[in-house]
Nucleic acid binder design. Structure first.
Length: 460
RNA sequence: GGCCCCAUCGUCUAGCGGUUAGGACACCGCCCUUUCACGGCGGUGACGGGGGUUCGAGUCCCCCUGGGGUCACCA
């Protein structure tokens, strides 16, 4: 049984790096028919926020990642941690340290001045005298004094850390609350986690956690340390890069399947394949195929994926999604024509909504450059004769509107562009956009006539 | 700074001693077309540098350079 977990600390929104890590864990668990646990790492009571937890859950919900069982909160498990800390204390594998924060800071400063690596000097490791009065001690674990900590990382390979790089790190603060490296190991073991896939900024926590596993006699999971995601200029991702919040992608009009597809290909690949459904990802993903080097994201690839998924999304779902962007098509009788025309050329839902509005709403102004380009020669006569033909017919379908344009073209002996360009300006105010016949079918005969008349009037 | 990790087109990547170094995004050109897109075809473009090992290195080793991570009573 494979058990994975995603264990964010609730200090802000879920960002795309976190989402990718979650996705990797989720895929691996699902692929193996295992369990995927969501655990909130909130042992530092002063930094938690419910809002952050809700933001994470909201993002999970949006992209469709589900987790097994209830969300685990470490803040609710302090009794368990306390028990294990007592156990280590009793067995002499951990000890109370009465050094105050101030003393520690002073020591560190001194060490740094001497050009040494700042570290705790283990002064209370074998202390058996009278503890100083009025000091609430922390609990430190006894790290080995010599030798190496070695573990096999599924991505990085064999990782060796010399014991003298490790401190007797703190496992319980002076207020009694346990610290990260301790609770992570305890929880991963107690929850039966078999595979830990996480950012490689945790690589150095791993030997510390291994010390905890060993001291407690718990099973050590397999580790996969995933390289970071860099911003578009190859630098570390920071809040300044914008669009860090996963939900921001929803607001920008990206489909969750596009985002997931984009993220899964950051650091992982399968042959030359670019498009992966969730099912394909599950079938093909293996964390040991993840790259060793960091990868920078580029939005244009996301755009491409998004437009691909938009093209392949049923119109019903598109029209539902478009409502978030202020376009309501559910009861529009020509919505199929409109959606079919738009989904071919939109990169995002937001863009699609804007294009829809351009068609659905009469233009308030006409593109100047377009006017210069298109309003040449006989354009007025052409539009007038188009109006005449249109008024005497009763077109409903795009093909029928097309016939009318065609009749004018033939009657006048002109090219399609001679009528198409001015007509475009009259209908939508600009030169780009879907097929004219589609546009006219969507807005209907009367609205078409009205817009052309308005156009002629305003440009007389 | 100490310790550690990483290094193929601008970007994401394939490559696991012998390849004209492949694909994708982006970019450019052509075709399609009433326009803008889509689509099709084609093109520009990479093994960071230096030493080895080998008959033969993008692939293995070392050094340099560059990037990153980490050194908390944060997670």
């Amino acid at each position: 049984m494979v058990v994975t977990r995603f264990a964010p600390s609730p200090t802000g929104y879920l960002h795309i790096g976190g989402l990718r890590t979650a996705l990797f864990n989720w895929l691996w668990a699902r692929k193996n028919g295992g369990r995927f646990i969501l655990r909130i790492e909130d042992t530092d009571l002063s930094r938690n926020s419910d809002k952050a937890v809700r933001a994470i859950l909201e993002a999970f919900d949006w992209v469709g990642l589900n987790y097994d069982g209830e969300v685990e909160y470490q803040s609710k498990r302090f009794d368990i941690y306390k028990e294990y800390i007592q156990k280590l204390l009793k067995e002499g594998k951990a000890y109370y340290c009465y050094m105050s924060k101030e003393e520690l800071d002073a020591l560190r400063e001194e060490q740094q001045k001497r050009g040494e690596r700042p570290r705790y000097d283990r002064r209370y490791r074998d202390f058996d005298g009278e503890p100083p009065k009025g000091v609430q001690p922390v609990v430190r674990i006894k790290a080995p004094l010599e030798g190496d900590i070695v573990f096999e990382d599924g991505i990085k390979g064999t990782v060796t850390i010399r014991a003298d790089e490790l401190d007797d790190f703190i496992i319980a603060r002076s207020d009694g609350t346990p610290t990260y490296n301790f609770v992570v190991a305890v929880d991963d073991a107690l929850m039966g986690v078999t595979d830990v896939i996480r950012g490689d900024d945790h690589l150095y926590n791993t030997p510390k956690q291994i010390l905890v596993y060993r001291a407690l006699g718990l099973n050590i999971p397999r580790f996969y340390h995933v390289p970071m995601i860099l911003n578009e200029s190859g630098k570390k991702l920071s809040k300044r890069d914008g669009a860090m919040d996963v939900m921001e992608y929803k607001r920008m009009g990206y489909l969750p399947e596009a985002l997931l597809n984009f993220l899964v290909r950051l650091g992982w690949s399968y042959k030359d394949q670019e498009i992966f459904s969730l099912e394909e990802m599950q079938k093909l993903f293996d964390p040991s195929d993840i790259n060793k080097s960091a990868s920078a994201y580029n939005l244009s690839k996301l755009d491409w994926l998004n437009s691909h998924y938009i093209k392949n999304t049923p119109n019903q779902r598109l029209s539902e999604l478009l409502e978030d962007f202020g376009v309501y098509l559910q009861s529009h009788d020509k919505k199929e024509i409109l959606l079919d025309a738009l989904k071919e050329r939109a990169k995002t839902l937001k863009e699609m909504a804007e294009m829809a509005k351009e068609i659905l709403e009469a233009p308030r102004e006409y593109d100047e450059k377009g006017m210069k380009k298109a309003l040449k020669g006989e354009w007025r006569e052409i539009l007038e004769s188009f109006l005449k033909s249109l008024e005497s017919a009763d077109p409903r379908l795009p093909a029928e509107f097309h016939e009318i344009i065609k009749s004018v073209v033939e009657q006048k002996g002109i090219g399609f562009g001679k009528i198409g360009q001015p007509l475009r300006l009259a209908l939508t105010g600009r030169l780009g956009g879907p097929d004219l016949a589609d546009i006219m079918a969507v807005i209907g005969k009367e609205e078409t006539i009205q817009r052309v008349r308005e156009f002629l009037q305003r440009n007389s």
